[in-house]
Amino acid sequence: MADTIKLEISRYSPETDAAPHFQSFEVPFRRDWVVLDALNYIKDKQDGSLTYRWSCRMGICGSCGMLVNGEPKLTCATFLADYAPASIRVEPLRNFPIVRDLVIAMNDFMRKFQKMKPWLIRKEEKPVSEGEYLQTPEQLDAYKQFSMCINCMLCYAACPVYGLDPLFAGPAAIALAQRYNLDSRDQGAKDRFPVLSQHDAIWGCTFVGECTRVCPKHVDPAGAIQQYKLTAALDWVKSVVMPWGGK
């Protein structure tokens, strides 16, 4: 196997470029290197202006999502060896505005995320001195999967609906709202309903299912959205059948 590998990296400088273009770099090939290691090598040894985000290099901080050969990936968990000896194309995540090189703007997600009220809502707070809210392992299991989201934005890059309609709330934000809705300690489902039940939230989703496929943490946002659709539809049926129900 060759001892170097070629990377074609998308570059964009807002100060000088009208549009992104590709630049090739040659880096040493090592079996234990991931795409992010190659980027770091380039930044340290060849071109310090290469711009990207990264931090933990162990798949938990969610910073280093990029497109590798067109596929949304955490670059800290994507081995060069899986592509060698062919060259590798690295681009910023799809569906987001590009700030520079491989850095995208995610302000939009942060705004939508906050709208979902992603915190525990109680009608009445129990004082801490009275101890914990009880929650059985089964109750924990009911929302645990959706609490694993690391906000890496891969699901947004995979979602064609988000690409076509920037108003769409998107997979991660909805999954995280559902994480609190399903938490046995939470009583805020009704507060989240108005945001979730809109056209640009759950009903915007057409269940492409790509978000779930690319999720590095197996959160299954597509499942979260379909489940909430069912809940919302049943609520609607209930309100029609029993308008006096009050619930």
Binding site: R53, S55, C56, I60, C61, G62, S63, M106, N151
Partner: peptide, 10 residues
């Protein structure tokens, strides 16, 4: 960094 990227996460 965005707060959820902080190293407490690890």
């Amino acid at each position: 960094v965005y707060p959820m990227r902080s190293h407490t996460v690890s």
